[in-house]
Structures are given as C-alpha cells and as structure tokens.
Nucleic acid binder design. Sequence first.
DNA 1: CATTGACATGTAGAAACCTACATGTCATCT
DNA 2: AGATGACATGTAGGTTTCTACATGTCAATG
Lengths: 173, 173
Amino acid sequence: MSLRYALLGLLAEEPASGYELTRKFERVLARYAWHAQHSQIYPELNRLAADGLVEIVAEGARGRRTYAITDAGRADLRTWMLDPPDVFTVRNEFVLRLFLLSTLDRDEARAMLRPIADGSAREMADLRDAIDKADAADAEPSFNRLIAEYGLRMFETTHEWALWALARLDRAE
Amino acid sequence: MSLRYALLGLLAEEPASGYELTRKFERVLARYAWHAQHSQIYPELNRLAADGLVEIVAEGARGRRTYAITDAGRADLRTWMLDPPDVFTVRNEFVLRLFLLSTLDRDEARAMLRPIADGSAREMADLRDAIDKADAADAEPSFNRLIAEYGLRMFETTHEWALWALARLDRAE
DNA sequence: CATTGACATGTAGAAACCTACATGTCATCT
DNA sequence: AGATGACATGTAGGTTTCTACATGTCAATG
C-alpha cells in the first residue's frame, strides 16, 4: 500500500504525469524513503484512477496525462498519515550491511567503513548546498525544509559514526 | 538477494534453526534493516542448502534442524559485503511519512511529530540500557557495539530533529 | 490427564516488485 | 532531412513478499 500513498502524497502537492512522478521517485523518494520504477507506477496510477482517488486533469503531447488527487484521495491519504500502523516496514540494504559487519575481520571492516564515511560527507555537502539555495530562493520557510533538515542530520550522524567506528577499530588493534 | 545474505550473515555468527533465525529477524533485523517472515525464511533456507551455502549440522526435537554456513556460503557473503552495489534498495514507511508531512496542515503535522519525538526517546533509552548491560557483561568490545552505537545515534538524531521541527512549527504560528 | 502456549516447519494463493522488451512523439542539433 | 535523446506510457514474465492456512511436538500448568 505504501506505493499508493507515496503517489497520493506527491499528487497532493501538485498535479503531475506518470513520467514526472517517476522522476520524483528517482530523484528524491527512491534514495531515502521508497523505491519504485515506472513499470510499477503507471499501473498503480491507473488503479488509483479506477478507484476514484486521482483523476486525469489534462492530456498533452506524446500521450501525456496529468493526474490530480481527488477529495476522496486526499481523505484516504490523510487517514494513512494520521493513523499510523504501530510497526513500520523497513528494508534497507545499507543498514543490513552494517548489521553484518561482525562477519568481517578488522581490515575488511575498515575497507567497508571508509567509503561510508566519505560517501556520507559528500551527501551532507550536497544537501547543505541544496538547502542553502532553497533558503535563498524561498523567503518563507516550508515543510520541505523540515525533511531536508532530517536528511542532513541523518548523513551527519552516519558520517560521525563511521569515523568513530574507524577510530575504535584502530585503537583496538 | 538481500534476504539470502541476511540469513548467511546470521549463520556466519553462529549456527541456528529456522525458528531461531525467524526470532532474530523479529527482534533485531526487521525493525532496522530487513523485514522477513518465517514463510519466507524456511523456503530460502532450503534453497541455500540446495545451493551448498549452508548445511544441516544437527536435528533435534520437534523436527528442529540446525543450519551452519559452509565455506562456499562464507565466500559468497564476503563478496557481497565487500563489493557493494552503488545504489542501495531502501523501503522505509517511517521516512516516507516524513516526506509527505507537507500534505498536512500545521496542527496535523504537530500531531504526527509528537509521537515520533516520544517514540525515539523511548527507543534511545532502551538501546542505552541494552548497551550498558552488554558493556558490563563482555569485558572486550565487540562489533555488535558498533552497530548498537549506530542505532543509538540514529534515534538521538530523530528525537532531536522532531523537537526542532515541533519548535519551528510553533514559532511559525 | 487435559489444556495451554511456546517450539518448529511448512505451503497455497495473491499482491508487490523487478527486468526487459515494446512503441511512439517531439525538439534540437548537424 | 536524418539522427539523437529526452519525453511518455505501457506490458510480459519471473521473482519476492505477504496473508492465511496447516500440522505436529513438547513442557508446564491446573
């Protein structure tokens, strides 16, 4: 069901085509929250339309169809947002690898942690840039600023943790 | 393939039965890294055995079969650990909801963030307890300490972020 | 000795998801 | 005018995952 709500959520912000939604997934959601390909998105949009949760509001060039969320869709989304299940589904290969760190020896563990420290530093820098640009553009603070801050703090934490873990491995030599 | 490596990883630490592996998933992996049910675990163990990556090392009461990782299994796991794909699969309902925060109004957002702040505080406290107990028990520092620290820092970051976001919403009133 | 609950493994059928293939449009560059 | 690449939507077939059903063992409790 999460894909369905991810789509409703994106359409609640603004109407979009399947193609645009696919790119939003690629650029944003897939990396942090929920992964989906176009081959899953298009059929789900058709199902959402059949269920009356979204509707086609425009048809453009190249068969493009712009979808918008309906009142029923908004109501459904709101219920899902405010009445969370008490257990959340998590599937995260990155964290899984961290959990299996203990299957490596000391040198191998270092070889795994080093790129994590570097990668998270890069992601931090990129996100900080994006935030600074957005802050300069929008005068008024937005909800998007909240989630960007969450991402930034997560990368910082991963970065600092990786450095800490590397130092700990060195010290225990 | 991740389920396969999750199982190999757990068996690399120590031999276990399907039942024990299922409980390890429930207690640890499912909440942070990878979710799987017994109906998926048992068939996968059989496939791993057929592929020679694990083997049955004991049979006990109630049809219990204890599996151990083989050398081939260890080699497979090591390759996967040290040669990561450059993009990781992520599916996380919790983070997805955060991304969709902007579909709520201010009061609804507060109603969503408050339990997140409280929940992460509780998880932090639990993990800190577990770490303290483990520190007291094992004299020697282990790899498990590293991943526990990762979890602890993640919950701290989520907690502090949620408080920051709540304060920001209040300020912008 | 009957009941309960943890232990223990499995499968059927449906839903979700992935990879790969398929098709066509429109704008831009050469 | 042809080539290229982004735009745009789709499906077939296979794999993974979920829900629900199914079966039986053993230990402890009343």
